[in-house]
Design a binder for these strands. Structure first.
Lengths: 242, 242
DNA sequence: TCATCTCCATGATGTAGATCAATTCTCTGT
DNA sequence: ACAGAGAATTGATCTACATCATGGAGATGA
């Protein structure tokens, strides 16, 4: 008797619902095939497992198929700094390109499936597929501009503005991959949010309560429903987009 | 009678003292020649002149030959956020790669000479010179990690730690290009520093006074001398380098 | 050379958010 | 099913830095 086959999840780039996000839109069909051959799919990580650690030598970047990742680095004195949260369809790991060493540790916030893209193979490929090279640089540049927005947020904005901004960011990113932009589960803890936004847990918690009292959101622990999207977005000050 | 020739400043990459910083170290001599042909040298900007404005369509990145540049973006409500200071040998302008539009305005803080590197030509070139492509990505990745360090600084550190960190950063960057790491002229105003570090002018000014009183530095307006480099660096908390 | 402007310094006061503390709720593992 | 640890909420107090206000020192320009 045959062992029953497990139901198969998407195992190539063509079938992956994320490809429009994490892959060059302009790539030819044949090109996608070549990229597909290079990508390694690892078995899902469970919560708190790491993809790589700060100090690891850099060899790959990673795309998220499902789940979520927190990136953080550790100071000399042992304090952590969360540098980013990554959601499905997003790419992380380029903090290692500068000097071949990861600056961050990347850890799964929940059960998470990632695609590994070996960087040397990727470089070979992108020499012959110009759109791939450009797309990759655009993704890096997007990381730069989003980091710079965070800098503005931390330098100039109040606790309420910072948290409203994070909620809007997550909402927008989920919306872009066709998930509900108004009902979602926050994968990270209040402590992680506070760490990321330069606030204490207590302040984060109070702001969530205040937002709930003002009718902006309804939330039960990590489950969030945004009731007043435009009201929330009015709280946010973004660098003017052109 | 011939018009007298002006004394010529370095006008190619071979002669430029900055090349070790802004160009791939591993590039072959012939490759450098090809890059050299692509780079445009414009006449020096004077103080307060802009290289590009937020909203401008992106076509080039820029390297600084001499002088200094401040990058900033403007929020909806008109407030500025300084996102970076760039010194000789450093490259700026990739904030435009993501969607072909600059997010920042770049302005000269003093008389400044820049090299313009047209991005499309650069892309062609880097397809055939693999080290160039990699080096460029490394420079972008370095921007990412330095932005992330600033994020940590803004999220976790006190006014004194932030300013100490900026002074150390400038000192290190000047040192790397063989200028004095302990005596230099800050090209930016106290207001710019405050804006960059999420502090008010008054706080910046007070911290400078306190640093002077504690014997860390001696300073007269923008002229700074670091008297106790190790003391200052003890104030700084950096993400652990691997 | 005088008037205006910008930059910097320093003092007095106010406040957002940190810190400290206590309680409840929710997972985790045995 | 229970013990213990971690996550979240809420309150009371404290403090680093913002804000407001003033004066001086260099630049800039008619």
């Amino acid at each position: 008797m045959q062992a029953p086959k497990l139901s198969i999840k998407p195992t190539n780039c063509h079938d992956c619902r994320m490809s429009a996000l994490c892959l060059p839109l302009a790539m030819e069909y044949g090109d996608l095939d070549r990229l597909d051959k290079v990508i390694q799919r690892t078995k899902p990580l469970h919560k708190n497992q790491s993809v790589f650690y700060a100090g690891d030598s850099f060899s790959s970047v990673y795309a998220i198929r499902s789940g979520s990742i927190k990136a953080y680095c550790v100071s000399d004195d042992g304090t952590e700094q969360v540098t980013g949260f990554y959601l499905p369809g997003e790419i992380f790991g380029w903090d290692g390109i500068a000097d071949e060493t990861h600056k961050n540790t990347a850890v799964a916030l929940e059960t998470t499936a990632v695609c590994e893209i070996p960087f040397n193979k990727f470089e070979e490929l992108s020499a012959s597929i110009p759109t791939l090279q450009r797309h990759f640089m655009q993704l890096m540049a997007r990381e730069i501009t989003s980091d710079q927005q965070l800098i503005t947020l931390l330098g100039k904005n109040s606790a309420e503005e910072r948290i409203a901004s994070l909620l809007m960011s997550i909402s927008g990113r989920l919306g872009r991959r066709k998930l509900s932009p108004t009902r979602f589960r926050l994968p990270m803890s209040r402590a992680d949010i506070g760490n990321y936004l330069g606030l204490t847990v207590e302040t984060v918690s109070r702001v969530f309560s205040r937002f709930q009292a003002s009718g902006y959101i309804k939330c039960d622990k990590k489950e969030v429903e945004i009731l007043n999207l435009s009201g929330l977005s009015n709280l946010v000050q973004t660098c003017a987009e052109a």
